[in-house]
Simulated assay, not measured.
Amino acid sequence: MDFVGPEETGWVGALREAAERQRAELDLALPGWPVYGLADSVESGWLAGWSRRDGEVVSVQIGYGLRTDETWSLVETQVRTGESPQSLDWLLASMFAENGRDYPVPGVLPAPRADGLPDAPRARPVDVTVDTAPVSALVQRVDEYVAWRLVLPDVVVTVTGRGVVTLPGLVRLTDLGSYAARRTRVALAAMRGTGRPGPEPLTGPDHDRPLWAHHGLLEMTMACRAEHAARMAQNRPTGPLPADWGVRWEAAIRRQRQLRDQETADARDAVTAMVGQVGDLQESAAWWERDGLRRRAIDEIVWVTASGEPNVSSVDAQRAWADDRRIGLDAWQRWADRHDGG
């Protein structure tokens, strides 16, 4: 199916140019180790991604279908001297997270290991056909998601997918050119599939609560940061961003422009710095857990951001943080010591 129509201008042309540059980059340094794909789908696979370390390709991903399809697969080949792979549990959990679902396996998930493959306590052994020969592998299935992993002399191959009943077998690829050529078409199909009208701009009580957009954005980003830290502590992937992520950022930037009469770029920089400073305190300041200090710090950061007025007690700490994060955190600690219990 040809996804290119008469509207192919602007972003479509830019996308094609970027894809061609990526293809040329990969063609210049194809890996010297084997790359695998599905044996029965050599005409439909596409180059889904790759990664480099110290300028050398260390992994290649071949995709079959889109993540929005009921059935899709991804074959990742990693050179054994590269990064340690994520565990099968983590890969399955990431597929659940992409769809906003909790992975139904409690506790901390196995972490990557520097000296070998991560543990796979819930996987079972299975044979996989590789270039017509059976090879021992591991498979783990949870609900409609599945992950296979096998170790070959030079590489580790991991196949993940949704709605896949059996693995048809793997074959060593002799050319990546056709897979790279299909990358652009698949990217266009994915973008067309998400080309729905955007959400309406977020509005709020400008007169009664003029700083509502700034506070709403911070509430969202602080909640996301807390969830991210909790997931990281258990080696779990993070889920998708909140549905109103974009509109809350846009609302805060719009209000910043209105309140300070700033250009869009300056308003965006101010709001970004506000979020960064609050996030830094949330992550690094021991006093942040004290409700009174936390609320006061947020109120003062929002006030200085939105008004430009330096008439709050933390203005020196805020200026110090803008110049140097470490010095700023120390200044914020001195501010907290002065106001603790006040």
Rank of each mutant, 00 (worst) to 15 (best):
T264A: 13
R209M: 11
D316M: 05
Q262F: 13
L88S: 06
A273W: 07
V60E: 05
P210W: 06
R21D: 14
G193I: 05
R53Y: 13
D115K: 00
L281I: 12
L241W: 08
Y145C: 06
A336S: 14
L88H: 04
G32V: 05
P199N: 08
P199Y: 12
D102Q: 10
R149I: 08
V171M: 00
G342K: 01
W50Q: 12
A267I: 11
V278L: 09
V58Y: 04
A18I: 05
T129F: 00
P112F: 02
V247Y: 01
D119N: 00
R183T: 01
W46K: 00
D69V: 03
R248Y: 10
W335V: 10
E43M: 11
A226H: 12
V312L: 07
V75Q: 05
Q86I: 04
R294W: 12
Q234I: 04
Q61W: 07
S178N: 10
D54A: 15
R319K: 11
W11T: 08
W303M: 06
S44D: 11
W332N: 02
R231F: 05
A306T: 02
R113K: 09
V108I: 10
A265R: 08
V4N: 02
A320H: 01
T158H: 03
D337P: 08
A306W: 06
L74S: 14
Q256V: 09
G37P: 09
G161D: 04
R296Q: 14
A39K: 02
V79W: 11
P31Y: 01
Q262H: 12
G204E: 03
A190F: 07
S84A: 15
A297P: 06
P153E: 02
T129S: 10
D269A: 15
S73C: 14
R162G: 12
N235R: 09
P153I: 01
D175Q: 12
A180K: 08
L15D: 07
Q282H: 12
A223H: 11
S314P: 05
A226T: 11
D324A: 10
V79T: 14
R182F: 10
G195E: 10
V139K: 00
H339Y: 15
D2T: 13
L88C: 08
G63N: 04
S313D: 15
E7A: 10
T160S: 11
R268N: 09
W321V: 03
V12E: 06
G63S: 09
A297M: 13
E70D: 14
D299N: 11
C224Y: 03
R295E: 10
A322H: 10
E263L: 09
D119S: 03
M274A: 11
V12A: 14
A93N: 07
